[in-house]
Design a protein around this nucleic acid. Sequence first.
DNA 1: TTTTTCCGATAACCCAGGTTAATCAAGCCT
DNA 2: AGGCTTGATTAACCTGGGTTATCGGAAAAA
Lengths: 266, 266
Amino acid sequence: MNVQDSCIIRHFSHFCRLSDDDKKLLRRLEESPEQVKAGTVLWQEEDRASEFCTLSRGWAYSYRNLGDGSRQILEIYLPGDIIGLREFAFSQRLAGVAMIDDGVVCHFPHRRLLEIFNQSSTLTAILFAISSRQQALLTERLINLARRTAHQKLAHFIYEMFLRLLQTGALSDGDFRLPLSQEQLADTLGLSAVHVSRTFSAFREQGLVLRERHHVKLPDPEALARVAEFDDCYLNDSVRPIFFDGTEAAMRLTNAHSADEGPVPK
Amino acid sequence: MNVQDSCIIRHFSHFCRLSDDDKKLLRRLEESPEQVKAGTVLWQEEDRASEFCTLSRGWAYSYRNLGDGSRQILEIYLPGDIIGLREFAFSQRLAGVAMIDDGVVCHFPHRRLLEIFNQSSTLTAILFAISSRQQALLTERLINLARRTAHQKLAHFIYEMFLRLLQTGALSDGDFRLPLSQEQLADTLGLSAVHVSRTFSAFREQGLVLRERHHVKLPDPEALARVAEFDDCYLNDSVRPIFFDGTEAAMRLTNAHSADEGPVPK
DNA sequence: TTTTTCCGATAACCCAGGTTAATCAAGCCT
DNA sequence: AGGCTTGATTAACCTGGGTTATCGGAAAAA
């Protein structure tokens, strides 16, 4: 049973060891893979919403166009993420989604989720956990946008991406691809593209972030985290929850991670 | 079977007609009601998180204290809301919660939710819908804080509260109690208290909002919505979803509302 | 190869909203 | 009654970041 072939399964295994039935259910979400090119719009605001999407390869983002012609980027999706959960309760899309990179997506109908609710309370709990984690991310971003200076905003965003990529095991040192233009960053952070440029210049002088094309290097990630006043308890291991508290043996937490790494000290 | 006695049940019935078993499950959430006074802190950031809370009476808010001594108010809870869902995936609280008003809250353990996942896929779907709706609210707030002017922020907030109160049936015209101080509003909107005051003054002159003590009057709610560039599709009837798409007869959408009002046109 | 397009850098100017501070009205205590 | 505290208002001043504009370099198109 190869786990590598599905980043959804890898993603879910993060929370809890999965039974074969669970894995089968998850694999059904990825029945219809589709290649999509950078810039492709998966859907737009107010489109009818009747399905979701898993992202198997490439990056994507969701956005809202605002009245004045500007737009706000809401979310950056990485491989293994489910796109559109946000709209579970709605019949219309609340936000558009577009590909940043070339990639592969798999559409699946609304119904599949209800099947999961019916057939696996483990997966249900994990879905709930994912959704709650997304809310935590969103909340942190809200604070970031509402309260912090441009320097902190940009530092925070970069560091958050750094951590997310670390978690998916996609990188080891502070050196990674960040395929967003400065304009996209500006739309994400509620800044002007000009000011993003200014801020990168400042970071370069301080040796905090070296950006070139679609590539960034963080000589000292910790320093960046300090600038951002980054509070990582919303992202990291505290996501390894007591959320299966023994009601059923089958639901007991057996974290895929701890199997790999042994119990984490500290 | 009296529905009035539980605002949770009323809240859930909004989405879907409930079976008696479902109602019984919900009532278990409210087994231990507790009176709490205005200002009471239900819990603080980083407290251990092992239970949730329903709010039966009064208003509450969640907040985060920031490094520089300021704080961000994240969410305003009204009667019928579940507090703490955000932390489902976490073992620590990510935000503090405090009462605005005197009120009544009911704690229930983490385990209750898992029971619901196991025993009722209808309730599970509704919980998911609530969580997705909360995310939609959060997203809208994010845009509000990231992108709009002080006037728009305040207008947006007031109008959103107006709509939420309308939905719970707590009011009919544009005339309601808003028990938040200007400082709390400032903390919610990422403004200074001084500027909130300035903005209220401007609104008063324009006849948009008349605020006095903890009471606001909206002579022309539509005008306010226009100032706020309010997009109500994230809050209103589109929350009446196709999210039960016929997989099971039992899960078919039979909206409690439409029973009251007859099928809604348009 | 040349042309066009896109992306980023830098500079000059300006304003929305933060900060500080003074003042006032309304409960609250004793 | 008189002091205290808490919230709201208004004014004076300042700054972070928006806006506009210009320029250079790299990639994509021709």
